[in-house]
Design a protein around this nucleic acid. Structure first.
Lengths: 93, 93
DNA sequence: AGATTAATTTGAAATTTATCAAAATATCGA
DNA sequence: TCGATATTTTGATAAATTTCAAATTAATCT
């Protein structure tokens, strides 16, 4: 979970996540939204992957990234722990 | 909002927030939960204050910290933007 | 096989962050 | 006012992060 918090702490990475909200995009398509080099962006992809916030899949010559929303639930729960008062049953199964 | 994301990216700071969930605590009381020096902790307090996640108030010799939950709503909304699909009315007034 | 395109990895420089020890500030009580 | 206590601020250092340029890997096409 620490890796998730670290991942979303960077504005560029949050922008990547937002871009992926509407659907999968290749590394190149994502790069069009940024000034920085593809190499730098690739680093950010790695951080997002390490946090399991995105998945990637090779499709021919390109690598397609997509959002992994399952982590979001954990993040939301974890965030609740920081602020919300305990409930009898925190909504988990 | 960037400052909020940065603030919660650090485990020590998240621990501080959790400790304050149950109620206000002085800098010294908070320090008891950590190994690091009071100076280092004070730095973390500053980061949390900059993000407006905590408020502080001098009470005699000590300085008492408390959670500011109003930011939480903004954070939650901002987080939704990263993952959730848009709604007609995102719940804001 | 060689050339081209798409993306990642590596190595290095610049910046930021976390931490400590020591100095400074502020309040209280004798 | 002086001494003790609580906390912050400063200055320095070590570690992590961001970024670029260049080298590398992988797939496609002729």
């Amino acid at each position: 979970m620490q890796e998730v918090f670290k991942a979303i702490a960077d504005p560029s990475r949050r922008k990547i996540l937002k871009m992926l909200k509407t659907g999968s995009l290749s590394a190149g398509e994502l790069a069009e939204g940024f000034q920085m080099t593809k190499g730098s962006l690739s680093h950010h992809f790695n951080v997002l992957k390490a946090a399991d916030l995105v998945r990637c899949e090779r499709r021919g010559q390109q690598i397609v990234y997509s959002l992994n929303t399952t982590v979001f639930e954990d993040l939301a729960a974890n965030l609740m722990e920081l602020f919300k008062v305990e409930r009898k049953n925190g909504g988990r199964k």
